[in-house]
């Protein structure tokens, strides 16, 4: 037993597609309540790594550990959220959010009442009986986030979740998200190509370069949470940004 066990850990993950090495020797970890970002340009294999961690893809080598348990290639343990909210148009917001609980085999009423408890915290009050098409982009992402949270309370993967939103909505979502994290316990791994987003939200940032995708550097953001807009224009923020741009441009 470790003193401070990692929530999630990957060990030496390699993944090929058609003989081509996509990601090489990925070793990353995520501690409880930590928010870690994976930053890199598009097409570097970030999403491949995510699918491996989510258990949808099986790596050629390496292991995925969740709470110290080997879950390599096992789907149904860790949920993820994409920039597409993937809310089903034919389900009400409540049923969409409760979908992972339905899948787990909970009775409909039980699943719905469990999901309902979080509607207020996630700012979704009053949307229960609506259909996704009646919600704004930001609200839909919140619903998608709640669905992810209900699926696996402790660890969640986010694949560029806010990148489809306009800048202003995105800023609002960041503030809302940071605020939410103060109230709920969730360890999260974020994929992003947005440097500002990574610095604002993360405790640590892994920088991925390639191809093949490898983790080049780990940057620790030493800034207390909750962070606000002042941090975005502080010298410390710019220093982090300068450092990251330098690594990415090599």
């Amino acid at each position: 037993m470790n003193i401070c066990p990692n929530k999630l850990e990957t060990q030496n993950i390699c993944k090929y597609f058609a003989q081509e090495l996509i990601i090489e020797n990925i070793n990353i970890y995520l501690k409880e309540n930590e928010l870690v970002s994976l930053l890199g340009v598009s097409g570097i294999g970030k999403s491949t790594l995510f699918n491996v961690i989510a258990g949808v893809l099986v790596p050629e080598s390496g292991r995925v550990l969740l709470n110290g348990q080997d879950v390599t290639g096992q789907a149904g343990r860790i949920s993820y959220m994409q920039q597409k909210d993937l809310l089903q148009p034919h389900l009400t917001v409540l049923d969409n959010v409760a979908l992972p609980l339905f899948i787990r085999g909970l009775r409909k009423n039980e699943a719905r009442s469990q999901a309902l408890r979080y509607f207020k915290d996630f700012g979704l009050d009053g949307t229960e009986r609506k259909y996704p098409s009646q919600l704004s982009g930001g609200m839909r992402q919140r619903a998608a986030l709640l669905r992810t949270y209900l699926f696996s309370h402790d660890v969640a993967l986010f694949d560029e979740p806010f990148s489809a939103l306009d800048t202003i909505t995105k800023g609002k979502m960041h503030r809302w998200y940071l605020n939410l994290m103060e109230r709920i316990n969730m360890s999260a791994l974020f994929i992003t190509h947005d440097i500002d987003e990574a610095i604002l939200l993360s405790d640590r940032i892994y920088i991925m370069t390639g191809p093949p995708g490898i983790i080049t550097q780990e940057i620790i953001i030493n800034e207390p949470r909750p962070r606000d807009d002042h941090f975005l224009i502080s010298d410390a923020f710019l220093e982090y940004k300068r450092q990251i741009i330098k690594i990415l441009s090599i």
């Binding site: 993820y80 994409q82 089903q88 992972p100 899948i103």
Partner: peptide, 25 residues
Amino acid sequence: PDALNLMRAMGAKQWQIYKYIKLPS
């Protein structure tokens, strides 16, 4: 396909994918 992938990641069985995604759509 992304929705189907998500369902699989959530551990959905084949019949659940039909029930919740494929048949309604």
